[in-house]
């Protein structure tokens, strides 16, 4: 400890670390521990039964399956979006860049209602899909669409700095539009 203290550039490491631990505990650890504490009241057998019941297992499959598909979609198309935003300078780029954060900013309940309205059999996109015999709202497809919507900013915001560091030209010469 004394060694690290001596090398620390920031003053008040102890205070900052103490605050960080307290803050993380209040915001993250305490709510999480309630979860464990509550489920511990079931006892090991009850807990095992609850987490392995067929309906719960079906929910794992749906959650992980849909998330994986959504992540794959975002991985591909999010990369394109990030690439365009980093590589090129064009009108409306900043607006587009801000729009990427939109799914972050929108409360999930609001996003859910908007997406269901859109994809319900009588919605703008749901009606043509229903004619093709595709049901989107309240199906695994709908869940995947919602997860794709929510996941986009995570992919783009993670890739942007990486692409920027790969591409030193973009920061020095803005007019490299082909």
């Amino acid at each position: 400890m004394p060694l690290r203290k001596a090398h620390s550039v920031l003053p008040g490491f102890g205070l900052a670390m103490g605050f960080t631990l307290l803050y993380l505990s209040l915001v993250v650890l305490i709510p999480l521990s309630t979860l464990f504490w509550k489920s511990a009241s079931l006892g090991p057998a009850g807990f095992w039964q609850a987490v392995t019941s067929p309906r719960v297992v079906a929910s794992y499959k749906l959650t992980f399956g849909a998330s994986l598909v959504a992540a794959a979609i975002n991985g591909a198309f999010g990369l394109v979006v990030a690439w365009v935003l980093v590589r090129y300078r064009f009108r409306g780029r900043r607006l587009m860049d801000a729009l990427v954060d939109f799914p972050f900013a929108l409360p999930t309940a609001v996003a859910g209602i908007a997406l269901t309205t859109l994809y319900a059999p009588n919605g703008w996109l749901g009606a043509p899909l229903a004619k093709l015999g595709i049901k989107a709202a309240f199906t695994p497809l709908g869940i995947t669409l919602a997860l794709t919507f929510i996941g986009l900013p995570f992919v783009v915001r993670t890739l942007q700095p990486v692409l920027e560091s790969l591409d030193p030209a973009s920061s020095s010469s803005p007019a490299t539009c082909p």
Binding site: T116, T117, A120, P121, N122, G123, A137, F138
Partner: peptide
Amino acid sequence: TTFVQRGI
């Protein structure tokens, strides 16, 4: 809402 508004 599901039945009336969403038409399901």
